[in-house]
Design a protein around this nucleic acid. Structure first.
Lengths: 359, 359
DNA sequence: AAGCTATTTGCAACCGATTGCATAAGTCAA
DNA sequence: TTGACTTATGCAATCGGTTGCAAATAGCTT
């Protein structure tokens, strides 16, 4: 039995000595029962309007706030949702989190946020902790295996962002077409050897991009060097950029904007001019025009993704029966800004090409 | 009575038809009572080790997860904490959120995140919603009035970040000395008229910075133009930068890094070279080296702030009695990078000064 | 005034845990 | 064998709500 303020009388605690007002206190003051007070909030249509008014007035007066946890225990609905991301500090996520938070807010839902630090194990732990106190969870760019995700999905409503699994509600930002556009642009501008800075293996987005880049390079007969990032961070981008330079590429396609910025910084430090010597293209448009020169990238759509994800999650929570296969695909585009241009050997405005374009 | 899976028998629901395992199910299988099972988790020292082992084995076998909300209802402890920020997307906050999340995680606490969109009203609503299901709440850069904060603090443990209120636990990032350093640097480099892009009125940080800038300019006899930002965002910075140019300043001190980046973008678009024509200094070091050229700024310390804040909050939750006046102050420093330099009329490496430095 | 339906309310059993108190079992000395 | 202590366990109340069902009251009809 919890030790708290208030003395005990027959039945429940004496309302007068209680600190936080409860239904019972209102009931006593209104000279009615707990059930009636409860209904004044949840089903006022069942009650005499005068009764409702009186109860609401008293509630207001003593500053009553319904206890969410007690309600959840009784109804099985918590009014909370969870969001798990690999890394809050990665600029791709804040806009997404913001979109979800703000929409959840509008729906009267509270948001739990977890950052797994790119670790599947931590993501699992967080999921377990949150599963008990949420109605559903959104996994953004999950690093979990398909089996793990399915296990969780069997016990708790889930929506995925940037992970394609049949049977689960999911929102996908499709960057394949955009990657092809980007490679196409590079091909047309004389690039013959480019690098792709590859992100986490577990990342669906990374797989998609790598696949698209490979295919596009095959078609345009461009040589592609795939350089794995030690981690999808600014520092990872710095290191990888150096390897790209060593490989002798004229353009770099980075896993995301953060690594692209890391690459940018390192290249600049090495005296490599962008885009004169090397063209640089990011992904996600997470640092919109926040960089100078403005980074060429693939449009992000993280906010739209967040909105759709919450919508799908709510649907999934509603009719838990329906194992309907909901899938929303958002198409990204290539955004040409100032960090990508012609290959160095092919001067921009020079009427006389120095090199043979088809060598 | 909630309608759920499972048939009802005398007393509680029939454990066999239940979906989520509860204490009762374990109790039945272990042929013991609910209390014993409960103690096997919370006070195993009170039990026969063999009993504990058996119970844990069964729990493991059937995949038992304690119901957090039931526990919270009974103990009054939720194991959750809340964090309210004005804008998740402002790059100052993600590192702070990340630090808090990761430490909360280590303590086994779950984190609710709310973004108020710079609105005090929404912040209030969020607070109300979270108060019922958290043990305490951290308010980062709150936009609430002192009275509002005190009202909340009277009912719920609170810790403040970047808001100085006597009697409440708070973590302050003191940028005044850093602002003075920055202004000092500008003075020494020949700047005679600078602008401060001023953030939200409710922001303590903004008040601090404005105050320090005013004082430093008075001492160094620099003219200071205070330009209020329409909002503390990239766009706000763009607009304000234009006004700063119109005012004819040679240096800009921005409320934070985000607005500084906005200013940077607009200045570049206007053909103003940085730092040749105008020096630019941000605040918070939120975009560390993520910009090019690297932004001069005041060190952020948001992660340290987050860590301290969670620590203070936990203390406040422990001994709720103690209205001890805890205050942690972190001192920021001026970080000179590439966007600040000599005033334009005073050439950097020119051995023959064109203007009189002491004019 | 009796009969019947429609509205309002209250009773009491839940939700899934925790925990004060009492009882049962085990240990040991006399 | 028995009383005095420990040590382990169980009983049952409690946290603060929700809700199925039944009882009470009100409103109409004839």
């Amino acid at each position: 039995m919890p030790k708290r303020e208030g003395t005990t009388i027959a039945g429940r605690r004496d309302p007068k000595t209680r600190v936080k007002p409860t239904l019972d206190e209102i009931a006593e003051r209104a000279n009615t029962s707990r059930s009636t007070v409860s209904r004044a909030f949840s089903r006022p249509d069942l009650l005499n309007p005068k009764t409702v008014a009186q109860i609401l007035a008293i509630a207001e007066e003593i500053g009553y706030r319904p206890n969410n946890m007690a309600r959840a225990l009784s109804t099985g609905r918590t009014g909370n949702i969870g969001l798990l991301v690999p890394d809050i500090a990665n600029p791709f996520f804040p806009p997404l989190i913001k979109a979800i938070q703000s929409q959840a807010d509008a729906l009267g839902l509270c948001l739990f946020l977890g950052s797994s630090g790119e670790s599947g194990a931590r993501e699992n732990t967080l999921f377990e902790r949150l599963a008990g106190q949420t109605d559903g969870i959104i996994l953004a760019s999950t690093r979990l295996s398909e089996a793990q995700v399915r296990t969780h999905a069997a016990r708790h409503p889930i929506t995925l962002i940037n992970r394609d699994m049949v049977g689960l509600p999911r929102v996908l930002i499709d960057t394949q077409a955009a990657v092809m556009e980007a490679v196409g642009f590079l091909a047309e501008n004389g690039h013959r050897h480019i690098a792709y800075l590859s992100g986490p293996k577990e990342s669906w987005s990374n797989q998609q991009r790598m696949e698209a880049a490979t295919e596009a390079c095959r078609r345009t007969e461009i040589r592609l060097s795939i350089i794995p990032l030690s981690e999808p961070s600014f520092e990872g981008g710095e290191t990888a950029a150096e390897q790209a330079v060593a490989a002798g590429v004229t353009a770099i396609l980075a896993f995301d904007d953060l690594t692209a910025q890391g690459a940018h910084a390192r290249l600049s430090a090495l005296g490599v001019a962008i885009p004169r010597d090397i063209s640089l293209i990011g992904c996600d448009d997470a640092l919109p025009a926040m960089t100078y020169p403005a980074l060429s990238t693939l449009s992000g759509l993280s906010q739209e993704a967040g909105r759709h994800a919450l919508k799908l999650l709510c649907d999934a929570i509603e009719h838990r029966d329906g194992s309907q296969d909901m899938k929303v695909v958002l198409g990204a585009r290539f955004i040409l800004r100032d960090t990508a241009g012609p290959a160095p050997s092919e001067p921009r405005a020079d009427p006389i090409p120095v090199n043979d374009r088809n060598r």
